[in-house]
Amino acid sequence: MALKHQMVVFLLHMALLSVVFETGNAAGLKVGFYQKTCPKAESIVRQTVGGYFAKDPTVSAPLLRLHFHDCFVRGCDGSVLLNSTADNVAEKDAAPNMSLDGFFVIDAAKAALEQACPGVVSCADIVALAARDAVSLSQGPSWQVKTGRRDGRVSSAAEAVANLPSSFAEISTLKAQFAGKGLSTKDLAVLSGAHTIGNSHCNSFSNRLYNYTGKGDVDPLLNPKRIPELRAQCKPGDATTVVEMDPGSATTFDTHYYQQVAAGNGLFHSDAALLRDPLTKKYVYQHVGATASFFRDFGVSMVKMGMTGVLTGTHGEIRKNCALVN
């Protein structure tokens, strides 16, 4: 099993070489940005993530989610990490972000980096690197992260609400939101595969079980056979219980998510919505068990997403504390 995983990761690295060479300087980012200024930057992040992962493998999904939620609001600028102030409600306190976690891992990595290379490595880059390491530690793919992001100084809860895709969204809305970030319909299908790891609170999908259209009905896209199981876990109004998004495989990055979606067992309406578009539906069915191609695609889409709206050069800043502007 380990040999198979190593071969898949090797093939992914080979497939990504052309992407790296073709877009290595795009938007001011490049692989190895800290090679001279902080040579151990990436290894410090990986060691930090690895230390927490060894104690609790469920830490991976929150770190991956942090990167996604960061990039979809103001671009990948670390704005999701900023605390609210007396006169501003920040992204992390927006309703869609109230369940975000993993901030402590980013803070620990930042503290280690500040000790090794003060004022050099941005919080935005730490988030991007931690997401990659979280996936690879979960037996998923690895990819080369282009670094050089700088940290933004603005964080708005209202912007988070306006920009973050909802678990209740229809396929047309999801496609439009991804297109608005320069991401394709294929990227939508690929990045949705991130739901192969992690948990969700019941209130992110319980309307599908009890009151889908306000008439006490269920979501017709949900496999009727799964409804009793989910109702046993989530009672009406339950906002605290968590459920595995990919039952039995929630800490292993694999293609089991696509198997679930194809069977009508996707936890969110947005998962089921992938079957409502010809391209995303085709991708779901083609990747039930197609690990190598999914891993390759996921790495490519993550590199692409990680370039969204970045700040480079003299824009933004390098925060000393990821939760506070300098």
Rank of each mutant, 00 (worst) to 15 (best):
G313A: 06
F68V: 05
E244R: 00
N83L: 14
V288G: 08
A273T: 06
C234Y: 10
L221K: 13
H67T: 00
F10L: 14
H69C: 03
V80E: 00
G248H: 12
F33K: 13
S204H: 13
G193F: 10
A162E: 15
F268S: 05
V31K: 12
H67Q: 06
A109C: 12
V8G: 01
L164W: 01
M1D: 10
D246T: 15
S18M: 07
A54V: 04
A54W: 00
L274W: 07
G51T: 04
T213E: 13
R150N: 14
E159V: 08
L113A: 11
A111M: 09
S200N: 04
V49F: 00
K235G: 14
A41S: 09
L137P: 00
V120W: 05
A239T: 14
N163P: 06
H195N: 14
D254E: 10
T147L: 12
C38S: 04
A160Y: 07
A232Q: 09
S192E: 13
H67Y: 09
I171S: 06
F21Y: 12
H256K: 13
P165I: 13
V121M: 11
S122I: 08
Q177F: 09
D297N: 14
A61W: 00
D297E: 11
R65M: 08
M302P: 01
T213V: 06
T240R: 12
A273Y: 03
G248A: 10
V89C: 04
K304S: 11
A160F: 09
F33M: 14
N223F: 07
A54F: 01
I171L: 05
T23Q: 15
G140L: 07
S301T: 11
S270D: 14
A27G: 02
D187Y: 09
A112L: 13
D77Y: 00
D77G: 11
L311D: 02
R296V: 15
C76T: 02
F33I: 07
H256W: 09
A169I: 10
P62T: 05
A94F: 05
R226T: 14
G237K: 09
H201S: 10
V243G: 08
S167H: 13
C234M: 06
D87S: 15
C202P: 08
A94Y: 03
E91K: 03
F295L: 07
P141G: 03
W143D: 00
G266Y: 12
A263S: 14
A95R: 14
A292I: 07
G316Q: 04
A26G: 06
V121E: 08
R150M: 11
T314C: 02
G299F: 05
K181E: 13
K110L: 12
P278E: 09
P62R: 02
V49R: 00
G193T: 11
V284I: 15
T85P: 12
D107K: 15
G289N: 07
A194C: 02
S60T: 04
F53E: 06
T196I: 06
S138I: 00
T240C: 04
V59E: 04
T185Q: 08
F178W: 11
G51A: 07
G75T: 00
R231L: 09
T314M: 02
S206E: 15
N25W: 12
P224D: 07
V49Y: 00
T213S: 15
G313K: 02
V161D: 10
V8H: 12
Y34R: 01
